[in-house]
Amino acid sequence: MNPPHEQTSPGPLSLNTVTVRDRWTLAQCIEGCARHGIPGISPWRDKVAELGLKQAARQIREAGLFVSGLCRAGMFPAADAAGRRAAIEENLRAIEEAHELGARCLVTLGGGLPPGSKDLPGARQMFHDGLAEVLPAARAAGVTLALEPLHPMTCADRSVLTTLAQALDLCDEFGEGTGIALDVYHVWWDPDLPRQVARAKGRIAAFHVCDWLVPTTDTAFDRGMPGDGVIDIPAIRAMAQAAGHDGSCEVELLSRRWWAEDPEQVLKLAKERHATAC
């Protein structure tokens, strides 16, 4: 994996608000991004709900920020028909929220196996069928459902969508209204990554950055600041840019270590690492 990434540079930085979720509200994140000169933001739906959808949209617009994505939707697998219907309804609400916020995409996860289930093909079929049901609403709203494959270690509890190839197969099938959220934390290990990123040409709706630490002490909440781990982020970013992505980098740290830090320092360091490690 040695593309000529020396010729390219990171595009605009965006803050995924989960990075400082324990210390800042969405209003504080918006103000902090504006103050630190971070031009983009990607809020989570629970924080949007706390502030209020219309108020969140207004404050983001007034701060002059672009919304690189809204987190998160998908997660269709459920133990029964009522659970699947509830997931559909929740996704329809998420689509409306993404439209109101002017988000570039709605990050869409696979969801894990239903409790007590070992039926992985069945869970993947539920994800497929859920996409099919909500896509007409996404298309009507002009919202891109950015399918985000997660690392295979999360297959049981977080995402039955585990490879970029699998996500792109769904994009090939469904077409309009679908795209890819490319998170380096989840795809860096894939030996087929260069070919699959090239295959994603024109369909990369979001590019998420953080780092894989060695050792990793938690499969969900031990992400590293870019530059602190083993991922060649500039190489993957260059692949994404060659595939037509605008280059924007969304810093997304699910990390108990960073959640405990002063958000002012987290944003300052994220901005520095965006310039030197992305």
Rank of each mutant, 00 (worst) to 15 (best):
E250S: 14
L170V: 05
V266F: 05
D22F: 10
A260N: 06
K271R: 15
E100W: 01
V266P: 05
V134R: 00
R72N: 12
A277I: 02
K271S: 13
I30Y: 06
V18D: 05
L106S: 07
D232G: 07
I204S: 07
E176G: 06
E133C: 03
R72S: 14
I41T: 04
D192F: 04
D172H: 13
H5T: 12
L51G: 04
T219H: 07
Q59W: 10
L26C: 04
P152D: 03
S255C: 13
L147P: 12
A240P: 15
G69P: 04
M239W: 15
C278G: 06
G11N: 09
P215L: 12
A260D: 13
W188S: 13
M239V: 03
P114M: 00
L164Q: 04
M126E: 15
L106H: 07
G244P: 06
V214E: 15
K54H: 12
E264N: 12
G52V: 10
G83M: 07
G224H: 01
L13W: 14
G32F: 00
H5P: 01
A238I: 00
K47L: 15
R199G: 07
H208M: 05
A98K: 00
A146Y: 12
R104I: 03
G110S: 01
G52Q: 13
V143P: 00
E31C: 01
V134C: 00
A123N: 12
D246F: 10
M239G: 01
P3C: 06
L65M: 10
T108S: 11
K54Y: 14
Q125V: 07
Q55T: 11
C278D: 13
Q241F: 01
R203A: 09
L26A: 09
N2T: 13
R84K: 13
A242T: 09
G83L: 11
T162V: 14
G229P: 08
P10W: 01
D211E: 04
R203S: 09
A220E: 07
M225K: 15
V230Y: 08
N16K: 00
Q241L: 10
W259L: 01
P10Q: 01
S14W: 07
I95P: 00
T154K: 09
G130C: 11
E89V: 14
E50I: 05
P12L: 14
M225C: 11
L113H: 08
D157G: 14
L15Q: 11
K271Y: 03
R203W: 08
P115F: 08
C171K: 02
L65Y: 13
A123S: 15
H186M: 08
Q55M: 09
E89K: 12
I60W: 04
W24A: 11
A87V: 02
P39M: 08
G111T: 02
E252Q: 14
R273Q: 14
G111L: 01
D172K: 12
L106R: 04
A138W: 00
C71G: 02
V197L: 04
P234T: 05
P39C: 04
D80K: 06
L26Q: 04
E96H: 00
M1D: 11
